[in-house]
Computed example of a mutant assay.
Amino acid sequence: MRIRLNWPVMILISLGTLLILFPLYMAITIALKNPEELAKSLFAFPTTFHWENFTNAIKMTNFFQALRNSALVTTSTVVLTLLSNSLVAYAIARNMDQKFFKGLYFYFISAMFIPFPIIMLPIVKLASAFHMTNLVGLTILHTVYALAFNVFVYVGYIRSIPVALEEAARVDGATTWSTFWRIIFPLMAPINATVGILVCLSTYNDFLLPLIIISDPSMYTLPLVQYIFQGQFNTDFNLAFSSYLMAMLPMIIIYLFAQKWIINGVTQGAVK
């Protein structure tokens, strides 16, 4: 049996693959060159691999301390988000027939359309007033800022879970609190994985919020310390791209192992 190839689709897939792989190729080749090779040819493969670029980048950025800060903020944000946002979404999803909860749902949805630069100044003022210009404050702000989108995703998924399960638990004497943690929350594993991965990626890669909140260099996250390579008159591209590759590696590994959870969670959450 001969299989027909859909050539227009194959061409589009090939072009899309090239568009994704070419920037990665550029990042790797630039990271392994010295300034002289960069000046000669930007696109050529390096003749000699300069692995010392990675060592110099680690020293200039205090890489491992910044990685520790990013890992701490990211892990704390993911855990706090899953525990708190799921509770808020559950309360809304199971009470959508009431005007208050329905209005609260649309209130959260409307927050998704507010650009972050508009609320930057109030956030800085509030964070300074409540002494939240540290990693703890950064974690709380990330959790709150992601609430709107997460409620939108969670509500759609929770409403697909049969209410009969909760009614049976109440008949057996379970409270609303125990029903959620023992029955509903375990059933939310796919959407929890999806939300957790998306929050992990966005928190780890965020530059703007730490920039306006954190002033102590010892608390800088990875996106902030990488800004050191950009000077007023020149940029150390080879060291910068070496640092970028090292910073990308943890998230690439996490995403490769967890991408099926993202697709599965989004697909199931779309079914009401």
Rank of each mutant, 00 (worst) to 15 (best):
M1C: 08
W7T: 12
P8M: 12
V9D: 02
G16F: 10
G16Y: 00
T17A: 15
L18Y: 12
L21M: 01
P23G: 00
E37M: 12
F43E: 14
F45M: 12
P46F: 11
T47Q: 15
F54W: 04
F64D: 10
F64N: 14
A66P: 08
A66S: 14
S70F: 10
L72V: 05
L72I: 08
T75C: 01
S86E: 10
R94N: 13
F100Y: 14
G103R: 04
L104I: 01
Y107D: 05
I123F: 09
A129P: 13
F130R: 14
H131R: 15
T133W: 09
L135Y: 14
H142P: 09
F149V: 03
V151T: 02
I161D: 07
I161L: 15
A164I: 12
A168I: 10
R170D: 09
G173I: 12
F180I: 04
I183W: 11
I184L: 10
I184M: 14
I184K: 10
P186D: 00
M188S: 04
N205C: 05
D206A: 04
L209E: 07
D216Y: 14
P217Y: 05
V225T: 06
Q230T: 14
T235L: 05
T235W: 05
M248S: 14
I252P: 06
F257N: 03
Q268H: 13
V271P: 01
